[in-house]
Amino acid sequence: DSLKQTERADVPAGDNLNPGNLQLVSKLKNPSGSCSVDVGAVWWEIAGVKQPCIVTACEYAVSLWKPLGPGQWREMYSWLFTEVPVLQIVSMPDVYNLVCVALGNLEIREIRALLCSSDGESEKQVLLSSGNIHAVLGLTERRLVSSSRTLCDQQVEIITFAEDGGSQGKQFLMPPEETVLTFAEIEGMQEALLGTTIMNNVVMWNLNTGQLLRKMHVGDSYQASICHKAYSEMGLLFVVLSHPCAKERGPSGSPVFQLIAVNPKTALSVDVMLYYLPQGQAGRFLEGDVKDNFAAAVLTSGAIAIWDLLLGHCTALLPPISDQNWSFVKWSGTDSHLLAGQKDGNIFVY
């Protein structure tokens, strides 16, 4: 049914929205004086028990916070970087006792695994990859995919690493001609990988063989789309995209997220659902995260908006707190929390 028309679901007026669906459960303050850049969640074994921990990243420090009690967190480990600043935390779907981070200035120069020593007494870090890296994604089964540019061409490689962060193997995928911007796994298909390119194509690989299977153009309405989630159903591929480069246009603006259906056999695609801001709200996508049926985005207005992808409309709007715009937002991979951060180091857990 969802393919019969491009839905423009009922959009509640902005003043009906509030963060009521979101309950603030705790807040933590990154003590580092440098600018906060990212947040994430990871399972970490502490005294023989795996616990859902929070990872915060500032420009020159990454910290692991363990839960102390309701609403309370204690900084347990801190990895420091003196030369190259941290750009992002790279979430690894099924890994514990290890955090991956991307370091660089405008572009990623290094990807490192952050761990602690076997006695748990000291932090350590392992260099996994270096170069002019454009895109990186943590995959299931301790794999990490990245694309990088050399003088002549583009390399797309998969690193498999061991529990101690050491590299176990490297595999190259056939690179497309265009620069890859983002990667996404296809849910339930560990042998398949998607990427989006700078020319607004979705490309697909077979991870077992390294073959580049398809290049599928997904329209000229938006450039440089980001792929957040993909799943295959009944012979079609459903892909959730966002559009950081979309211009604000028309009375409703541009959609922040978009669900498309692609036929991999023909490379033809159609819009299934467009996810707009509530009426009266301005802004476009800055950065965001999708988990299960929920999408969250930091907007240029400084607010965070949340969509139920099945209902089709925005279900919560989180305005800036204490006159501080939101900078980044992530769904926790360890529980049902939303992690929202501000540049000054405040992290709010909803």
């Binding site: 393919l3 077979n206 299977l213 012979g235 079609l236 259906a261 036929n263 056999k265 033809l268 819009d271």
Partner: peptide, 23 residues
Amino acid sequence: CSQADLGPISINWFEELSSEAPP
């Protein structure tokens, strides 16, 4: 839009594309 816009659909698209694509 209808499924006709997307052309013929195959449930085994991944295997079929893998057998057609250059190694």
